[in-house]
Design a protein around this nucleic acid. Structure first.
Length: 598
RNA sequence: GGGGGCGUGGUGAAGUCUGGAGUUCACGCCGGCCUGUCAAGCCGGAGGUCGCGGGUUCAAAUCCCGUCGCUCCCGCCA
């Protein structure tokens, strides 16, 4: 596979049919088993591992290097493939039926003693792994993840090419837009005091491509958002970004289905059943308390407002009277102790609930709970029926306004029910997102970027809090894989949306005037999507975070332990850029360098 | 900005709650023996400022305060 003048075949490619071949191998010394008279080496390269047998009498010229071979030496072996002697084959290796008898052997490059072992037996501290990422990626886990990432991108490209999409690169030094995530900034030398931003997405450029007549565009695009890190968030990440003209929502979702199915087939060898589930935002919030529901398990949120419509229990009745709701989940056979149940109550309060009612269904069907005495027998019976309660089940009930109840029960559902080690893939498209998120104070914040088609303009203007936009997310196992929307192609609508989103006309003109201008020249209706490749592959590989899928990721504080970035620059560079570091930061530097103990 | 967890020879862990000599285990490393192993085996050896600083104490890896690093989460991520 990766042959050259220095090697004729990959170590991992050797099979019984190669017996008798003279081969030249090159790779790294994995495990070395030195029996004094005979030495075995597991020779590893990008294709896999093969056993090399070295006997001094077969290779007298090598005598001086043989016993000096150490882990991760880079070597070249000229030898002959032969079947392993009876009883010494290794069924755990694809190459286990054969071995290579070494003739000449060259050390191409010795290795210093390793900072950690290359084998998979121990979880090495991640900072150490990142500091020596080039060694970490010799280990199976990282090597396989890099291959999976490459294959996933390859599968995506196949679908795009098949669909006639044009790959176009958009600039990564662009104008800053203060809405949304914080921009990563790059100072300009030619215009001192001015800054580029790195793109949070290619959004406006791909819309310009639609206006430019490209019709079908895609790009494997690096995106940048200067926000805090999470297991599934880095400040730079990669998306498959695509857009189509004369498209509506269903056109986008159908292409997405092809992409997702191709990638799943490539990495999991599974045929995905299409079409994927579609669910509205409202339904997802109602049934799962989340806009990215984990659909691998049930435990749905059930509205109990009718059950307790006339209750005398103040916690429930009070919430209902003030326009709130009572909802519950059947947690199934949780079998929690009293302290375990109390922890759920504490958790619910952390999440914003005033309290949480738990009930355990006893063997005789009666309900054990601190609050049963406040509830009528009829209420308890209806409750059991409504939640399909069976002996052993634990019921969790919260009462408050719908937003709080959804958030609390949605999170408890995940805390209590999320299946560990479940390899199932539960995809869903979440559609009909609201235009605005309504804050606790009733304030409106845009739920999407202002280029999203807001649907019905009348609704947007008269009751913006209920407006539903043509925006959709792709969700997998409770993770948001990406989002997209039908875009605005009418400059009048675009201006109106800026207005509703509290971006003043002069400001919109100053910042997006060029884009409003572009919309005026026969803009086709268009729609698109962007899918997060790091997240997608990390879930398909069952990895706990996206760093395992990124070759050179950053730590939670944005540092790269290998190269030492970010780093201070020379004063001359700052002068050239016309910028200076603020005095308080310089003071902190001085303190750091002065007397660290003080 | 806030909350939780972790930091002990090169690597991974135990020891920390309940203070008493850097103690232990596995891997690796170095040397020796060994001709069919594949996590090779046997024998011997080296290697640590218990993240860093301060405090309490006769005595601190262990208790207290601070700080740094890593990590998970909330906020944030239109």
């Amino acid at each position: 596979m990766v042959t050259s003048r220095m090697k004729t075949i990959g170590a991992g490619e050797l099979r019984a049919e190669n017996v008798g071949d003279s081969v030249t191998l090159a790779g790294w010394v994995g495990r070395r088993r030195d029996h004094g008279g005979v030495i075995f080496i597991d020779l590893r390269d990008a294709s896999g591992i093969v056993q090399v047998v070295i006997k001094p009498e077969d290779a007298p010229a090598n005598e001086d290097v043989l016993h000096g071979l150490r882990s991760e030496y880079c070597i070249q072996v000229m030898g002959t493939v032969r079947p392993r002697p009876e009883g010494t084959t290794n069924d755990d290796l694809p190459t286990g039926a054969v071995e290579v008898v070494a003739g000449r052997l060259h050390v191409l490059s010795p290795s210093a003693p390793l900072p950690f072992q290359i084998d998979e037996r121990v979880d090495v501290d991640e900072t150490k792994r990142l500091q020596y990422r080039y060694l970490d990626m010799r280990r199976t886990r990282m090597a396989e993840n890099l291959k999976a990432r490459s294959r996933a991108i390859g599968a995506m490209r196949r679908v795009m090419e098949r669909g006639g999409f044009l790959e176009v690169e958009t600039p990564t030094l662009i104008a800053s837009t203060p809405e949304g995530a914080r921009d990563m900034l790059v100072p300009s030398r030619l215009r001192p005091g001015n800054f580029y931003a790195l793109p949070q997405s290619p959004q406006l450029f791909k819309q310009l491509l639609m206006i430019g007549g490209v019709e079908r565009y895609y790009q494997v695009a690096k995106c940048y958002r200067d926000e805090d890190f999470r297991a599934d968030r880095q400040i730079e990440f990669t998306q498959l970004d695509f857009e189509g003209s004369f498209w509506g929502q269903d056109d986008v979702l159908e292409v997405l289905e092809k992409i997702v199915a191709e990638v799943v087939a490539e990495l999991r060898g599974e045929i995905l059943e299409l079409p994927l589930l579609r669910m509205t935002y409202e339904e997802a919030k109602d049934r799962y308390g989340s806009d990215k529901p984990d659909l691998r398990f049930g435990m749905e949120i059930v509205d109990l407002s009718d059950v307790f419509a006339a209750t005398e229990f103040k916690a429930f009745g009070g919430a209902l009277v003030s326009g709130g709701t009572v909802r519950g989940i059947n947690g199934g056979s949780l079998d929690l102790s009293r302290s375990g149940l109390d922890r759920l109550v504490t958790r619910a309060k952390e999440l914003g609930a005033k309290g949480l009612v738990w009930m355990v269904v006893e063997d005789d069907g009666s309900l054990r709970s601190p609050v049963t005495k406040f509830l009528s027998a009829a209420e308890l019976e209806t409750l059991k029926t409504t939640l399909s309660a069976r002996p052993g089940d634990t019921l969790l009930i919260a009462a408050d306004d719908a937003g709080v109840v959804g958030k609390v029960l949605g999170q408890l559902r995940l805390d209590v029910g999320r299946p560990e080690g479940n390899q199932e893939l539960a995809f869903a498209f979440i559609t009909d997102f609201p235009v605005f998120d309504v804050g606790e104070d009733g304030g409106l914040t845009p739920a999407h970027h202002p280029f999203t088609n807001p649907g019905d303009l009348e609704t947007l203007i008269n009751s913006p809090e209920t407006a539903v936009s043509k925006a959709y997310d792709l969700v997998l196992n409770g993770s948001e894989l990406g989002s997209g929307s039908v875009r605005i192609h009418d400059p009048e609508v675009q201006a109106k949306v800026f207005e509703v989103m509290n971006i003043k006309a002069e400001e919109a003109e100053a910042r997006f005037g060029w884009f409003l201008e572009a919309l005026r020249y026969g803009t086709p209706p268009h729609a698109g999507f962007a899918i997060g490749i790091d997240r997608f592959v990390s879930i398909l590989r069952d990895e706990p975070n996206i760093r395992e899928i990124i070759p050179f990721p950053k730590t939670q504080t944005g540092a790269d332990p290998l190269t030492g970035s970010p780093d201070r620059v020379q004063e001359e560079q700052l002068i050239e850029l016309g910028i200076d570091v603020r005095p308080e930061v310089r003071a902190a530097w001085a303190e750091e360098e002065g007397d660290p103990g003080a």
